[in-house]
């Protein structure tokens, strides 16, 4: 089923990575002054920007306010120039709505919403350049942005995708590997190992699920290490500036 050229004889993938290797990740926290929290991430050629406002008073319909916890409101959009062909509608299509819903579920699991009753937390993410793994980049950027806003979370949320080449699981699947069968997306709380979201886009044999899940989990933990370094660098930088 899977195309044989996904993995070369030497065990390398089309873009030169080894099966468990991630694409290069670069991230930065606190890119905007106006927002409560913001972050930018690059995973390979996928670039995402996340902005967090809140917790603040309910805007719009006040009836949506939850008496015991905060409402997490997510919006996902793709810049018109983010794909090879210019997009007509930057947001509001069905796919965007679905992704926003997934983001909301992911972050409701991670944010300690019960600390902010009757308020609202807005998470806006935008894809500036789409090159596979949009959801993952959004989750990772939003994690950093929420942290930048000082909103309490159980843990980081790290998301990564995995595919399969024959029996070898491939971490952080690139769009060229789209032919390579089913795609698994995992959002993980790495310290506790809890799964915030798991998405499987095609049929997969039960026996292979374990391996794919394990590969995605490994990738999430590797990503956690990268994001953690970004956060700590930022912490050090700001505490040094603030002094005592």
């Amino acid at each position: 089923m899977a195309a044989p050229e996904l993995l070369s004889d030497e065990g390398y993938r089309a873009d030169g990575r080894r099966p468990a290797e991630l694409r290069k990740v670069r991230a930065r926290m606190g890119v905007f002054a106006q927002a409560d929290g913001s972050a930018y991430i690059e995973q390979g050629n996928t670039k995402a920007l996340a902005v967090v406002y809140g917790p603040h008073e309910m805007r719009g319909s006040r009836s949506k306010a939850l008496p015991d916890r905060a409402l997490v409101n997510c919006q996902y959009s793709m810049a018109t120039f983010s794909t090879g062909e210019r997009r007509r509608r930057p947001h509001g299509d069905r796919q965007a709505g679905e992704l926003a819903l997934h983001l909301k579920q992911t972050f409701e699991a991670a944010i300690l919403t019960h600390l902010y009753p009757r308020s609202q937390i807005d998470i806006y993410v935008q894809i500036l350049q789409a090159d596979g793994g949009n959801y993952c980049a959004c989750v990772n950027a939003a994690t950093l942005a929420v942290m930048d806003a000082g909103i309490p979370m159980r843990d980081y949320v790290c998301a990564c995708s995995a595919g399969l080449a024959e029996d070898t699981p491939l971490a952080d699947r690139s769009p060229e590997e789209a032919a390579g069968g089913p795609r698994l997306v995992l959002a993980l709380l790495p310290a506790s190992g809890q799964i915030a979201l798991l998405q499987l886009s095609a049929r997969l044999h039960q026996e292979r699920l374990e391996a794919a899940l394990e590969a995605a989990g490994q990738a999430c933990r590797a990503l956690h290490a990268v994001l953690d370094r970004v956060v700590r660098d930022r912490l050090r930088e700001v505490t040094a500036l603030l002094g005592d």
Binding site: R236, A240, G243
Partner: peptide, 21 residues
């Protein structure tokens, strides 16, 4: 590049991120 934490007094600050015990 940020060097190692340079807190002026009281030595190293204990910096944590979410999920850290």
């Amino acid at each position: 590049a940020v060097g190692p934490s340079a807190s002026s007094r009281g030595g190293e600050k204990h910096l944590v991120a979410p999920g850290d015990t």
